[in-house]
Write a protein that binds this DNA or RNA. Structure first.
Lengths: 330, 330
DNA sequence: CTGAAAGCGCTAACAG
DNA sequence: CTGTTAGCGCTTTCAG
């Protein structure tokens, strides 16, 4: 038994001939080692848990992809759970991960408190991707280790700079659900606008009613107010908005400029093609897994990081004469 | 030990008072039962494997969501792997599932042969969602049990009927990568067109070069040919195409009608809103998990099923005078 | 280099 | 109703 175990794991101290023989017979028998049994003795499951809000969102999909890719490349399997922005769901998922003894856990877009879940999960390394706990607005209070996110503030600064350069004056922010990232992006826009133009206040709309639907009345209001440019919480919201505004005869970019956030694949093929802030989502997922792997290996969680973003200028902000110094499109 | 084990699983034969006491102490100690140890003795892991081509595709995301939801509702955890349309990746993933002793496995959009993988996975129930093995074109040769897909043929028939009713004559099919579903959809369009109009041949384009990119030269050709209507393999391709055609001054629906397949969330907010065939993707994922669960419970795989689809008429096919009898848009 | 024995954390069968 | 015992399938000493 011991020899078979060693042979199958390419242990050095086993004669090449016996190894071959073992492998051959194993294959003939259709023998597949039982990881559960192994994990019991080595106290490691070669498994990573990944909690996402909803597999349906394109950004989440990219993060999942990067995460799974990195994990698989190192022989780890990923357990996936949807939290649906619901605390009970999230807790249940974490409990599952704990029972399965995931060697590491990544929480993406979760509103759970960081300290709390770290201590609940005891010795298991935990990484927070785009943490949404209310206290996190501004992104200054992420823990020093194991947190990961894009530099949203910088992204919004570039957005505002771009819009101002193009001659847009009356900017509006169209918000999401009041999550940490929503607040952060809104505040970043407001601050950047104030810096550029101290006397121009930022108009803020929150058109998302319960259930993620858009409040049509508010769309009518926006159509009436007709700001110069709408900076949206994310690409999806930007598209929903443009779609609804179209029914009010308001078209981007002729009547309003529109900016998204995230650069989902669709942004580059929409009509109009959407100006947006690109985040390296796949890389974020990949690095989240890498951090976990490093923490498992070295027993020390790597420091938190913020990944750079990039403004992508496309058609949705291009009716006015182009300013100077902006990045090329595509 | 045995009493603790029973108490924590709400076994009936344990005194309520002891149960309470056990639960209390367990919580205080932060005790979490080890599933690996349990699975060793009960010979079940409460785990389902899900193989998808790429978490990035919106349709896959919806399937993942439904699958995970159903699994979680029954206490099962899902292990996710991306196959990237690569046989080696897929095989590695299945091997992982086997080592972890997943109680059931779902392969989505895989080109692996059904019989072969069933026998490889031995006693583990396997479900095939949208199987893409080349032999599957036409969808007549899915195995009798454990296969799941949408009724693409019916969907395409409705598309053709709709287009003909609207007065479009010169139809073209714009294909994907020659997968089983691609062939099936193309043939369905061709057959339906022949039935409606025996002398009108179907023009077929295959613009996807290696790496999923679109061959620009072919787009120019399409722009030159200017068929009446483009029936696309899926929504994503439809959008890519409309985007590229726009550069050639060809706009939908004024210059060509365009139809997609899948009804991704974006289809309803795009400009123009896309006429497409809606599949119940979340439900497909949910039912795939349900089939697996049933197979685990009854030791018998439920019969294969084909889910109904629905034509959704939107702006991208509406420049001509509307025909009669078509479904309303939304 | 190979084999025998102990034990990872749990559940099931069996006594009490 | 509770406790004792014997494994589940593997890896890891420790002897040969």
């Amino acid at each position: 038994m011991a020899t078979v175990s060693r042979a199958l794991r390419d242990h050095p101290q086993v004669n090449e001939r016996t190894r071959k023989r073992v492998v051959t017979v194993a294959r003939r028998l259709g023998y597949v080692p039982n990881r559960a049994a192994r994990s019991l003795v080595v106290r490691a499951t070669q498994t990573l848990g990944l909690l996402i809000p909803d597999a349906t969102d394109p950004i989440h999909g990219e993060i999942v992809k990067g995460f799974e890719q990195e994990a698989a490349a190192h022989g780890y399997t990923v357990m996936l759970a949807n939290g649906f922005d619901d605390e009970a769901h999230e807790r249940r998922a974490l409990e599952m991960f704990a029972m399965h003894r995931a060697d590491g856990v990544a929480l993406m877009g979760s509103a759970l408190p960081q300290r709390g879940t770290r201590s609940t999960l005891r010795a298991t390394p935990v990484v927070f991707v785009n943490g949404e706990h209310p206290s996190l607005a501004g992104y200054r209070s992420d823990l020093a280790r194991g947190c990961l996110r894009a530099d949203d503030v910088r992204g919004m600064e570039e957005v505002v700079r771009h819009l101002i350069a193009r001659g847009y004056r009356r900017l509006a922010y169209v918000g999401g659900r009041g999550s940490a990232s929503d607040i952060t992006r809104r505040d970043a826009v407001r601050a950047a606008l104030k810096r550029a133009n101290p006397h121009q206040p930022l108009c803020v709309y929150r058109p998302r009613s319960a259930g993620g639907k858009i409040d049509e009345a508010l769309v009518a209001t926006i159509a009436g107010d007709r700001p110069d440019a709408l900076v949206c919480y994310d690409d999806k919201l930007a598209f929903q908005l443009m779609n609804l505004l179209r029914e009010h005869g308001v078209t981007a970019p002729q009547d309003v400029a529109v900016v998204g956030f995230g650069d989902i694949p669709f942004a580059r093929m929409a009509n109009p093609r959407l100006t947006t802030v690109a985040q390296p989502s796949v890389e974020i997922g990949q690095r989240a897994a890498a951090m976990l792997l490093a923490a498992i290996r070295t027993r020390r969680m790597p420091p938190s990081i913020q990944l750079p973003v990039r403004l992508i200028v496309r058609e949705s902000t291009t009716n006015r004469a182009a300013g100077s110094g902006d990045h090329p499109g595509r």
